[in-house]
Simulated assay, not measured.
Amino acid sequence: MAAAISIRNVSRRFGETWALRPVDLEIAAGEFIALVGPSGCGKTTLLRIVADLQAPSTGEVRIGADTAAEARRKRLLGLVSQRPAVLPWKRAIDDVRFTQKIAGRVGFDPAKVLGEFGLAGHENKRARQLSGGMLQRVNIASAMAHDPSVLLMDEPFSALDEMKREEIGEWFDRELSLRPKTVLFVTHHIDEAVMLADRLLVFSPAPGRVLEVVSVPVPRPRDPSFRQDPRFVAITGHVRNLLMHRVPEGRAA
């Protein structure tokens, strides 16, 4: 069961330097939220605070009824990084089992989930025998193997070429319709965010603050043809305009 996330007045500063201005956001269970903005704007900082990998300077995060620390201890979170966090000496299926062992919980049958992720026949291959797209599928399978309520994803498709990135994104969108999760997804890629997310948090450059929360009023999973839809064009154009014509500090967005 997916869990809701509540982000209340969460900020982060290092000495006198703000890495992230205060953020308030309520995320519904099963909702997909993309964090979009330039490098150094606080996207990954916010993700790490939700993951309980970094403490906020102000505010708190709740995942369901739990604090971020409690959710981490209960293994309610799955984390997917930019680079596949696979162990080169292990087979794909062993990577998935390793996550389950660490979590102390078997959510999905490893062979079954790898098969559903398009890796049937590749379960016993090691990292060097798999393509970049396959490795990222193993990475996501490992993060989902213990059936966490929340997936936290930090630019998970950035190492892939454009065509593979779109293919994996469309595949992931379909998978979420079968295994619903609450997703927080960091990306620099505006088209990707609009294709996948229910809402986008558009960040200013450092010190990061939310310029606008942009909704994508089209049900998921979305057909690839949505990229030619006038709504897709309008939303991506609006987000680009926000990022290119930024509101000066202290003025309303």
Rank of each mutant, 00 (worst) to 15 (best):
I190N: 01
P148S: 07
A197Y: 00
P84L: 00
P224Q: 10
S204A: 12
Q136P: 01
Q82S: 03
T236Y: 07
R222W: 07
R75N: 14
P217W: 06
I168M: 15
D109S: 12
H189R: 11
I49E: 04
A71T: 10
L87Q: 04
G78A: 02
S11E: 01
S177F: 03
V210E: 00
S57L: 06
R240F: 10
R137E: 05
V138Q: 03
E60R: 14
F32T: 10
S142E: 02
G40W: 00
G115T: 03
R75I: 07
V218S: 03
R231I: 14
D94Y: 03
L242P: 04
R251D: 14
D24E: 10
R97K: 15
Q136D: 02
W18P: 04
E26T: 13
P248W: 02
F14N: 13
C41V: 04
S81T: 15
D229C: 08
E155N: 05
L201D: 04
S6N: 05
G40H: 01
R251G: 12
G59P: 08
R220F: 14
A68T: 07
G250S: 09
D52V: 04
D161P: 01
L160M: 13
R128D: 15
G250W: 07
G15F: 03
L243H: 05
F185D: 01
P110G: 07
C41F: 02
L87E: 08
A19S: 13
R73D: 12
P56C: 01
S142L: 01
L87P: 03
V216A: 07
D191K: 01
S177Y: 07
V86A: 01
K101G: 14
P219T: 10
R105H: 09
D52M: 11
M153E: 02
D223L: 10
R8F: 02
R231W: 05
T58N: 13
A92D: 09
D173Y: 03
H189I: 12
K164D: 13
I102N: 09
E249R: 06
R126E: 14
V202D: 01
D154A: 06
A252Y: 09
R105K: 11
R220T: 12
G169V: 05
V113H: 09
P224L: 06
G237R: 04
R179I: 11
Q54E: 15
W18M: 12
H189K: 09
M195L: 14
T187P: 08
L35K: 07
A85H: 01
E249D: 13
V150S: 02
R83I: 11
D191A: 07
